[in-house]
Simulated scan of single mutants.
Amino acid sequence: MALLLSLLTALVVFSAGPGGALGCDLPQDHVLLSRENLELLNQMSTISPFFCLKDRRDFRFPRATVDGTQVQKAQAIAVLHEMLQQVFNLLPTENSSVTWNMTLVNELRSGLHQQLEDLDTCLVEEMGEEGSALDMQGPTRALKRYFQGIRLYLKEKEYSDCAWEVVRVEIMGSFSSTTALQERLRNKDGDVGSP
C-alpha cells in the first residue's frame, strides 16, 4: 500500500506543481484535477496486485525517453502529452469486460482529457519557440511502442482481471518515472537538459 501511495504522489508531482511550471499558463485547477485523477486511479483497483503476481510482465518502459537530460522543453511536453494520451486511449470503454467501476473510469478519462487540453496549449506555445513536429517523433515513438506492448499483453491475457490490474499498476509506475522530466521542465532558463 505504501508503494501505491508513493506512485500516486509521483503522479501528482508529474502533472502538478505551481502554475506555469511548464513554461505556459496552466489553469489553477490543474493541480486539483491531478489529485482527483490519482484518487480515481487508486479507487479503480478491484483485486490485490499480490493476487496477480504470476501475471506480471516487464513492459520495458522507455526510461531514456522520459529521462529528460538532453531534451528540449517542447520535446518534454510532447512526451508528457503522449503519456496522457496513450493512457486515455488504453482505458477500457463501456463495452469492456473489465471489473472496474466504469463511473470511475469515465471520470478518469474526463480528467485526463482536460489535462491533455492544458498540455495541448503548452505544446503549441513551445513548438512555435523551439522546433517542429519532427523533433517530437523519436521520444513519442518509443512511448507508442511501449503502450502497444501493453495492448498486446492485454489481448494475450484475454483482458483478464489480473491483466488489467497489472496494467493499472504499470501505468502508475510509468507516471512516476516522468517525475524527473517534470522537475527539469521547471528550470527557469528553459533548457531542460541543464542541471
Rank of each mutant, 00 (worst) to 15 (best):
D55N: 10
R184A: 04
F88Y: 13
L91C: 02
A76F: 02
F147G: 01
E170I: 04
A180C: 13
A16N: 14
M172F: 05
A74D: 12
P49Q: 08
L108D: 03
R63F: 12
L185N: 06
L8R: 05
V192A: 08
V12K: 08
F50Q: 13
P195C: 08
L134M: 09
S45G: 01
Q114L: 10
V31A: 06
Q114S: 15
F88K: 06
L185Q: 14
D191E: 14
R63T: 06
P49M: 11
G111C: 03
L112H: 09
M83F: 03
S110D: 10
G23W: 01
R35N: 15
L108F: 07
L181N: 05
L104S: 06
G149I: 08
R35V: 15
C24F: 03
Q182A: 12
A16R: 07
V12E: 15
L143A: 07
R141E: 07
D55T: 00
S132Y: 03
T140I: 15
K188S: 11
V12R: 07
K54E: 03
M83T: 07
K157C: 07
R145W: 05
D161C: 13
R57V: 11
Y159K: 08
F51T: 06
E165N: 07
V166C: 00
L90F: 02
L8S: 01
D118W: 06
R35K: 15
S132P: 02
D58K: 12
L181M: 14
D135S: 06
V124N: 10
L104E: 13
R141V: 10
H30G: 13
A180E: 10
N89R: 01
K144Y: 00
R63G: 02
H113C: 15
L3M: 10
G193E: 06
D120H: 15
R186N: 13
Q75A: 09
H81T: 08
L143R: 02
L40I: 07
A64H: 00
L152T: 04
C162G: 01
L108C: 07
V167D: 02
L84N: 04
M1V: 06
I77K: 00
Q137L: 08
C122H: 08
L80H: 00
R186S: 13
T103D: 12
P92M: 06
L91W: 13
A2T: 09
F61Q: 05
N42E: 15
G23M: 13
V105W: 07
Q115P: 14
M127L: 15
R57Q: 10
T65V: 11
A142Y: 02
A163H: 02
V71Q: 14
V71D: 04
I77V: 14
A180F: 10
S174Q: 07
N106R: 13
R186Y: 14
